Computed example of a mutant assay.
Amino acid sequence: MPKRKRSVHGGGSVYQRKGDGRWVAKFKVEATGKWRELYARTEKEAYAKLQQALFEQKQGTLVTAPQQSLQAHMEHWLQVKRLELKDGTYTYYRVYTEAYILPVLGHIRLQKLTDAHIQSFYADLLEDVSANTVRLIHGILRTALEAAVRWKKIPLNPCKTVTPPRAVKKELTYLTLEQAQRLLEGARNHKLECLLTLALATGMRQGELLALRWTDIDFQKATLHVTRSLSYRNPDGTGYEHKVEEPKTASSKRTIPLPDFALEALQKHRVQQLERRLKTPEWEDKGLVFPNDTGGYLWVDPLRRQLKKLLQEAGLPVIRFHDLRHSAATILLAMGVNAKVIQERLGHSHISITLGVYGHVTESMQLEAITKLDDQFKRSKGGQP
């Protein structure tokens, strides 16, 4: 018979196996009701393992799930996240996981994954991608491993003791007022004229503009209602498709007052669209303000190419479509428009986002304010400005 001893603190036992002489610490897992055995070379080591396991069980950190690889866990985690995330966010999680995390760390058993593995992974990544990209990957992996802790797969999240690279602040790309005017001048009578005009006048996101319908515009009140967004996604890796969804955040649903030049561009564009519609028998009426040639959703790749060509022809720096949004906000800030008003036009959830993104403008405005303040006080003292 094997030599058996009761645990000092109860809740399990320690005994020596007769066959190979190994020591066994045995206890019941409260979450499953099943007995678990831990093996050790000495009696002292067996007691230490038992006490540690009972402590983890009391603290709620005892691992109760079966062992699996990081890849198996990440794939299951992505399936769960698919139910709660928007297509855009889910796609970015899936693509970064499959492109970067799984090829290097996927084979490692989840319970064997250490902070040293992850830190070395980040160091190697920095040779090929930017620090900001590594930080994005770190955010995905940290969140996935936090889920592993909640699901009792691992006791602690190794990402918590890993140091990601410092974020590098990117220079914001935008057009000045004079450059924006040059772009619109070059786009006169072009099929993108109205789209670019509205982008610069409202600061709307690309998806919000491409999902815009004529029923969203109130010409009498000179307002525009943002209620939906068009995404161009490949969430499951099976092919790209258009999808109309809720805007990015609750604050993204908003009403934007329109200036006269934007209203005039919309009215002109509507007449042109009606004429084109009459000449197109296969027209698909979705009520879109900015459809493709047959009334359906506009694909973004041709849009980007046409924008690039217009910028080059106008002698302007090549920027992304999203940078028109930055341009709209920068122009308004430079004109002295209140940041709260700009926040509401852009649909930012907090004014701190607006001020954080466009701090370059507010800094120059601060310098301008100081100069004006200095001039005023010099005048009040009879000095020379």
Rank of each mutant, 00 (worst) to 15 (best):
1 M>N: 07
4 R>S: 11
6 R>W: 09
7 S>W: 11
8 V>M: 12
9 H>I: 14
10 G>K: 11
10 G>M: 06
11 G>A: 10
11 G>M: 08
13 S>N: 09
16 Q>I: 09
17 R>T: 05
17 R>E: 11
22 R>H: 11
28 K>T: 11
28 K>Q: 08
36 R>T: 14
41 R>F: 06
41 R>H: 12
42 T>R: 09
45 E>L: 13
46 A>Q: 05
48 A>I: 12
49 K>A: 07
52 Q>W: 02
68 Q>A: 12
74 M>A: 13
89 T>W: 06
90 Y>A: 02
93 Y>A: 06
95 V>D: 13
97 T>C: 11
101 I>M: 11
110 L>G: 09
120 S>G: 05
125 L>D: 02
127 E>H: 15
134 V>L: 06
142 R>E: 11
147 A>L: 11
161 T>P: 02
169 K>E: 09
169 K>L: 08
169 K>A: 12
170 K>P: 11
171 E>P: 05
175 L>K: 03
180 A>L: 10
182 R>K: 15
183 L>N: 01
194 C>L: 08
195 L>D: 03
198 L>R: 01
198 L>A: 04
199 A>D: 03
200 L>Y: 00
201 A>Q: 11
202 T>H: 01
203 G>T: 00
204 M>C: 14
205 R>K: 00
205 R>P: 00
206 Q>S: 10
211 A>G: 07
211 A>L: 07
213 R>A: 01
217 I>W: 07
217 I>K: 09
224 L>G: 02
225 H>Y: 11
231 S>R: 06
232 Y>W: 13
234 N>K: 08
234 N>G: 04
235 P>V: 04
237 G>S: 05
238 T>F: 04
241 E>M: 10
246 E>R: 14
247 P>A: 04
249 T>D: 00
251 S>G: 03
255 T>N: 12
259 P>W: 00
260 D>L: 15
262 A>P: 02
266 L>K: 03
266 L>G: 00
267 Q>P: 02
267 Q>N: 08
270 R>Q: 14
282 E>G: 04
284 E>L: 14
287 G>N: 06
292 N>V: 05
293 D>N: 12
293 D>I: 08
294 T>H: 12
297 Y>E: 04
300 V>L: 13
300 V>R: 15
304 R>H: 12
305 R>Y: 06
308 K>G: 15
309 K>P: 00
314 A>T: 04
315 G>W: 02
319 I>N: 01
320 R>C: 03
322 H>N: 03
325 R>F: 04
337 V>Y: 05
339 A>L: 10
341 V>N: 10
343 Q>D: 02
348 H>W: 02
358 Y>R: 03
366 Q>H: 13
372 K>A: 14
377 F>N: 13
384 Q>A: 14
